[in-house]
């Protein structure tokens, strides 16, 4: 009396699958094509990064990474991520609170606005800051008069990074918080918890995996952004180069091993991102299905 009375299709060689799946040769054929496609476009490039990086041995690899310009690039990348991720995290939580827990006119317009940086070419994402803060830009004269540099300097890189990573946390949290409704917060309020307390004790535990998911994707993009940063950076070696820009310079100088060595750091970051993302996704799914 404890087991399925409903649809059950779990025995291995169930002939019933004849009704629900394709003949074995068709299955094999489709699987082979799909896997070949995925291998060609995903696995081979991923493996190639590491193989190329280690082609000249670990010593050359380590030397490329420990080189001062590379080091400066890592530093700048970390700074850009350290500024943009918290900014967009706070924004993401605030925006999803307002959007998911309240009703107001123009909500779907606001959601579309938040999504915009995803659908804008990275080159344009960089361009807009050049238009604002570049020499010919709106604030260009004023900035140069006060000798403040934004474009072709660190602030520009940070601004461009904030822009391209803008939606990540919000777009992950909005659907999650919408699916959770506001019953729990209302219950906390009735039980006498204040707004902040109810947020910390009730809301936050419910969205923590969603937050992690958003943050990890936001961070990956912040550290890996190329196009937007490339436009505003000015490519000043050791000063305004992030890791991806440094990779480009090395590559264009035909210093392939060094380029791939530095690139392998980013590839490792991507792998960690994918692993954490899978975990967070799994947790979020569990949480949603448990409700």
């Amino acid at each position: 009396m404890h087991l399925p009375g409903g649809p059950t299709r779990n025995t291995k060689k169930n002939p019933a699958e004849l009704n629900l799946t394709e003949p074995a040769p068709v299955r094999w054929f489709l699987t082979a094509i799909a896997l070949a496609f995925l291998a060609l476009f995903l696995f081979v490039p991923l493996a190639a990064v590491f193989v190329q990086a280690l082609e000249k041995g670990t010593e050359a690899y380590l030397a490329a990474i420990a080189e001062p310009d590379a080091f400066a690039a890592v530093r700048l990348t970390l700074i850009a991520a350290a500024v943009s991720v918290p900014l967009n995290l706070v924004f993401g939580v605030a925006a999803s609170w307002a959007i998911a827990k309240f009703d107001f006119p123009g909500k779907s317009l606001l959601i579309t606005l938040i999504d915009i940086p995803f659908s804008v070419s990275p080159v344009i994402s960089g361009l807009i800051f050049v238009l604002l803060f570049g020499l010919q830009g709106w604030f260009g004269e004023w900035l140069s008069a006060n000798s403040i540099k934004i474009v072709f300097a660190v602030p520009g890189i940070i601004l461009a990074t904030v822009f391209v990573t803008f939606p990540f946390v919000a777009r992950e949290l909005i659907p999650l918080m919408q699916s959770q409704g506001r019953d729990e917060e209302e219950a906390a309020l009735v039980l006498g918890a204040g707004g902040l307390k109810s947020f910390l004790r009730v809301t936050l535990p419910n969205i923590k995996w969603g937050v992690l998911y958003g943050v990890i994707l936001c961070n990956a993009r912040a550290m890996g952004e190329f196009g937007a940063v490339s436009v505003v950076s000015g490519h000043i070696r050791g000063a305004t180069n992030t890791i991806p820009l440094h990779v480009e310079i090395l590559y264009n100088e035909y210093n392939f091993t060094a380029a791939f060595a530095v690139a392998s750091l980013l590839a490792l970051l991507a792998l960690v991102t994918l692993a954490v993302k899978s975990l967070a996704e799994w947790k979020v799914r569990q949480q949603i299905s448990a409700e």
């Binding site: 404890h2 009375g5 409903g6 649809p7 019933a16």
Partner: peptide, 11 residues
């Protein structure tokens, strides 16, 4: 009752 096998038999 549920789990008695009636749906399985029908299928």
């Amino acid at each position: 009752p549920s789990g008695s096998g009636k749906t399985t038999l029908l299928r």
